[in-house]
Nucleic acid binder design. Structure first.
Lengths: 354, 354
DNA sequence: ATGAAAGCGCTAACAC
DNA sequence: GTGTTAGCGCTTTCAT
């Protein structure tokens, strides 16, 4: 074990309270004393014992971040941003993975780990609206994502519908009319990202006077590259004609690009593609992929800020707050306007290619 | 605060020691007592206070993982694997990011956080061989990577040289003779991944009787996609002829693919590409990218196992151990053997394309 | 097989 | 301004 407060106090010739005062920047300490204590701290290399501090004060300086899986780019980038935001507030982040498993998500909420975290940033994918009650726990939670709305906790989420609408409007703006959607959810709970983004899709079509064709909407069991690739192959196998794809997230979109290339369909000449989330990878795919960007730093910053406010606040508690960071459309090669004016004239589309 | 040991003891009508015995599966507890205690635990929803446990026992059940940045795919996948390995042992993982910054890496070692972690998995990139002394800390560390060898701690690293040699042999095996290397380190400390992999490169050339051409070896300040793309453009701008690229990691390799496409050089027809690490993304790039695969689960598993052994062991300590997981070459489209026998006959190469 | 009690290092209420 | 002191909840001798 390292040196303790007592060791420092002894060396400095003061009581532990004075040492504690110095450590916590208590203003009423004589400068001379402060210097003496600080020297003792330095020579001993004293580091506070966080377990003891946590036991006594109820605060550990550690927050939890529960996500489905770090190997999914979006969550890795989110975790990156969260850790940075936490660090700037002197907090550390304990990362848990749920694999998108319902039991694992419930375990995160009720396990023994939370009792030693100051708070939890929770991004569920298996829990749904009906599970809001499980968020009623005796420590602060900030909910991330679109699975549950109006729950008992603070919540950070995107402007899903309007962002999706903007994405599709971008496609329509470059002259596309047959916009496929990849990533519709199999089980539609009514409050998940898929539904919200799909709503934006329909709004954009409607505003442009384009009819809705259910054949263009493809489900994916998993929001990953495999799912996107597979859905695209199915779309083509079914002989559906399309000149654009709106992938409900970037991983799907990268799978779409991959599949289109396998089918020897040119992007964006034959089919334009836009994703959602603007993960780093979208900049480097071949072709680079347009996407809807949410400032992830902003999102992480907001989430950590909400959490810290909660564990600093006194009763009575503020009501749950909802924060929705802004978004922008990032146009890249996959929606490059190669002969956009001809897009209608030459009825390009995957079905032509087969 | 939740219920404590005392609450459970009172409800069960026993002492806290008995409750503690039940929790720790101490064998000499009457079955009847055990049941009674267990019921009390369940009805109260008792969860042990980890801060108190940590204070008393010196063990918190939390290990640290310090990596440069989670937004780098390789480290996200590593973190994923580490968290899984830790979870299977009942440990949680606190993730720290160093941004590859020397001061940040030193802070990880000496900060107050370590004093509350049971151990640390540390993947430095700024520290080097001369900094081995900083690893002499009073808690167990497992070093990851190739920056420091022969240090005072356990160490998990790849067979860099032989794996790199195998990668280059793969390229030679499909008929390539002008193999460029992307990612050589600017400042060569002699014990980093770059040097070791470069050594494998030279071994492979030598074994095949191919002369070493320093023009083919390109430096990159950063091992990311930008670095790989930039180095590739430079290579071509310099008019160097090459028919294959060995990217010292996959992020570089993906940048290489991107740049080759911008230069309208076909992969693998004109130039074959192989990376290193086999990140998930390599499977989905366009074209998919061959790579050197280290079983990351194995690596993570080994690292966590070494760490747990350390904090369970009694004095005297075992000497530092070195673990090097196996590797395999994963062949994908980027080294697809399109007319491999002609590779020599038709002196394909980037320089032809300009 | 179970209980009593000390104390891990720290914070904060209270004394002086 | 600084010191004293009582626990926070748990583990762990030592008794019984």
């Amino acid at each position: 074990m390292g040196p303790t407060l007592h060791d420092v106090a002894r060396l400095a010739g003061v009581s532990i309270k004075t040492v504690s005062n110095v450590i916590h920047d208590y203003p009423y300490v004589k400068d001379a004393t402060r210097t003496r204590v600080q020297n003792a701290i330095d020579t001993l290399g004293y580091q506070p014992n966080l377990s003891a501090r946590g036991l006594r004060s109820g605060r550990t300086g550690v927050i939890g971040l529960a996500v489905p899986a770090l190997r999914e780019n979006y969550f890795a980038e989110l975790a990156d941003a969260v850790i940075r935001a936490a660090e700037s507030r002197g907090l550390s982040v304990l990362v848990e993975q749920t694999s998108g498993d319902r039991d694992a998500e419930l375990r995160v909420l009720s396990g023994s780990r939370p009792r030693f975290l100051d708070g939890l940033l929770f991004s569920p994918v298996a829990l749904g609206q009906d599970d809001a009650k499980f968020l009623e726990v005796p420590y602060p939670i900030v909910l991330l994502g679109e699975r549950i709305f109006g729950g008992p906790t603070d919540h950070v989420t995107m402007h899903n519908t309007s962002a999706a609408r903007a994405a599709v409007e971008h496609l329509i703006g470059i002259g596309r009319r047959r916009v496929a959607v990849v990533g519709a959810s199999v089980t539609d709970t009514g409050t998940n990202s898929s539904t919200l983004r799909l709503r934006g899709y329909r709004q954009a079509l409607e505003a442009a006077g384009i009819g809705f064709d259910p054949d263009l909407v493809r489900e994916c069991a998993h929001w990953n590259r495999d799912g996107g690739a597979e859905a695209t192959h199915r779309l083509i196998r079914d002989g559906v004609s399309f000149d654009a794809v709106f992938a409900l997230n970037d991983s799907l979109g990268l799978g779409v690009l991959r599949a289109l290339r396998e089918e020897e369909i040119r992007v964006p000449e034959d089919v334009a593609v836009i994703g959602f989330d603007n993960i780093d990878e979208a900049r480097f795919s071949v072709p680079s992929m347009s996407s809807v960007a949410t400032k992830r730093e902003e999102l992480a910053e907001a989430a950590v800020a909400l959490l810290t406010e909660r564990f600093q606040e006194k009763e009575p508690r503020l009501p749950p707050r909802l924060v929705q960071p802004d978004f922008t459309i990032v146009a890249r090669e996959s929606t490059g306007t190669y002969s956009p004016t001809h897009a209608d004239a030459t009825p390009a589309g995957a079905s032509q290619e087969r």
